[in-house]
Structures are given as C-alpha cells and as structure tokens.
C-alpha cells in the first residue's frame, strides 16, 4: 500500500498535498496496490482527497497536531505507516515535508529520495528521478529497502480527478509529548498561493529601482492570479519580505510561468528558477544573461513594458 501524508493549512488540504496524493495514486497503480492518505489534525474538505486517487483517508485529530513539531509528526506518520503496512510513504516537498522526510525514513529504516519530479520507475527495482546541482542535472536514484519514502516537488505533475469523495476513518496513534514550544506563527496574506505551490510567479529585481515601484509587479501578478517574488538584492535591501526571495539561497520554485522583471539572471538566481516551464524575461539590457534561459524575451524599459503587458492580458481575459 502507498500511504500519502496530507498537509493542511487553515483547516483545508493544501494543493501540494493533493499533488502528493495524485503522485501516490500513480505510484500505487504501477505497483498494483492501493493508495491511502493520512491526515493529522482536521480538514473540512478531507473527503475530497479521494478525488485524486486515495481510496481511504486515515485521520487522527489529536490537538498535538495543531502546531508543527517535527518529532511528533514524524513519529505519528512512521507509526501509521507501520500499522497500515505501507511499502511506500509519500510526502509533499514543502517546508514541513522537507523537515519530516529524513526523520520518517530513519524511523522506518527506509531509503528515501526528496524532491522527486517523476513517478518512480518500478520495472526493475524502485528508482526515482530528481534534479541535482541546482537543476543543472537530473539523477535517477534507486531505493533498495523494502519501505521507501519519497517527497514530491511542487508543480511536478498536473493533477487530475481519478476517483470520488472517500471515507474518512479514524486511526489511533500514540502521540508523543511536545519537544518544542511554538511561540508564534507569522504568515502574511493567507489568500496568496505560497511560492512553492504557485503555478504563475511574477518576480522583480533591482531594475525596479525601489520598493515604491512594486505596484506594476503586483498589478501584473493580479491579472495573472500569480504570486509575487523577488531576487536576492531586493530582499537583502528590504524592499520586499525575505520569504519572497527566490534563488539558490532563497526558495527554489517550479511554476508553469515565471516572469522576471528587471532581474539580470545571476547563476545563483537561475539555480532557484530555471526549472520553471515557461520563462519570460523583461530587461532593458540586451546583454542580461537571463535572456539565455528565457523562452520569451522583451528588451525594453520595464516601466513601460510591464503596464502594457498587464493591459494586454486584461484585454485577452475580457
């Protein structure tokens, strides 16, 4: 059986979790087994997990899951995997999923691969493909243990409805005592899709000249239903919040559309974004290295080009 750990946010199943469920479903199909889900805490839309291929949702709603404690979560997931005799455990490659994978794999005496981008190859053994060297190469890694743990990189597959609403069954687990105390959770704008999950991202660099000019970036993001991001110099200068920084030292993303405005495209920036499916680069400098990685390039003054693009997309949508 393939067991998928489903992450929630604000009482709802996260988009990244549904991708993990669909990935688990496709993996289970290949292995000729079923895909089931594990929910820790509550989600009002829990039955909809079935739409993406889980035949059953196991839920434990202990209040200990209200805050993220790596030890409590990993112990509970490993325990559920043992109890349900899962041969594969799937996680989202989110900040919590990344924190959990090593811990869970150790507890299950399992080999693991994080940030998988494709369904496992199961014809001979069990191997998983992922990006390495900051996306400059791909690697196929074989896991040679009876139990395998895999985390799925966001936006790696297009999810489809393959099932129906499913039953939510309660599972009893021995929940650990907390080893940490979460003092506060500071989140900005909960209605914005988080960067690692965003399908469209509009990103600004030093070319914007100052935080007061971000209106044109936000207006473009708005018409595209995109999430905004920025380059390192911009977050270092505090023009934009730290969590918007994409690149090697910031967040690595893989959206369908990445629009880079006034970003020259240093290798450290590319390391975090060159997995994007379509890249648009808007820069007044025709020599900007980013153009080499772009699908579409516009050489021009961003203060004129960006509002025109916003208007053109509005027109298209009208």
């Amino acid at each position: 059986m393939v067991l998928v750990f489903v992450e929630t946010e604000n009482g709802k199943v996260r988009k990244a979790a549904l991708e993990a469920v669909y990935y688990g479903y496709l993996t289970a199909q290949k292995l000729g087994t079923s895909c089931q889900a594990l929910l820790l805490g509550n989600a009002e839309d829990a039955t909809s997990i079935g739409l993406y291929g889980a035949t059953l949702v196991h839920q434990n709603d202990s209040i200990s899951f209200n805050f993220f404690d790596n030890q409590i979560y990993s112990a509970a997931i490993a325990q559920a995997a043992k109890k349900l005799e899962a041969s594969v455990v799937i996680l989202s490659h989110s900040s919590n999923g990344k924190s959990l994978i090593g811990n869970i794999a150790y507890l299950l005496d399992a080999g693991s691969v994080s940030a998988a981008i494709d369904i496992p190859e199961t014809d001979k053994g069990f191997s998983v493909r992922k990006g390495v060297y900051s996306s400059k190469a791909l690697v196929n890694i074989e896991i040679n243990t009876p139990v395998r743990v895999v985390s799925v990189l966001g936006n790696s597959l297009q999810i489809r409805v393959v099932g129906a609403n499913t039953e939510v069954q309660s599972i009893s687990l021995d929940v650990l005592q907390p080893g940490i105390k979460v003092l506060s959770v500071d989140k900005l704008q909960s209605n914005v899709t988080p960067l690692p999950e965003a399908e469209r991202v509009v990103s600004g660099g030093r070319g914007l000249k100052g935080p007061e000019n971000w209106g044109i970036v936000e207006e473009l993001a708005d018409v595209l239903h995109a999430t905004t991001a920025c380059s390192r110099p911009v977050s270092d200068a505090d023009w934009r919040p730290h969590h918007e920084h994409v690149g090697q030292t910031g967040i690595a993303i893989r959206p369908n559309l990445y629009i880079a405005i006034g970003i020259s495209g240093a290798i450290q920036h590319l390391a975090g974004v060159n997995n994007s499916k379509t890249i648009v680069v808007i820069n007044k400098d025709p020599e900007a290295p980013f153009f080499k990685s772009a699908n579409y390039g516009v050489v021009g003054d961003l203060f004129e080009v960006v509002p025109k693009l916003t208007a053109a997309i509005k027109n298209l949508n009208a």
Binding site: S112, V113, A137, L138, V139, N140, V281, F291, Y296, G297
Partner: peptide
C-alpha cells in the same frame, strides 16, 4: 539504502524568442 543509477543533463533549451 540508496544507489545512483544514472545522471542526465537536462535537454537543451530552445533559443529565446524576442
């Protein structure tokens, strides 16, 4: 618990369309 089967370089990107 794992071993590397193979590496690949990503397919070359098409030239930018201006």
């Amino acid at each position: 618990k794992i071993n590397i089967v193979s590496h690949e370089l990503p397919p070359a990107k098409k030239a930018v369309q201006y």
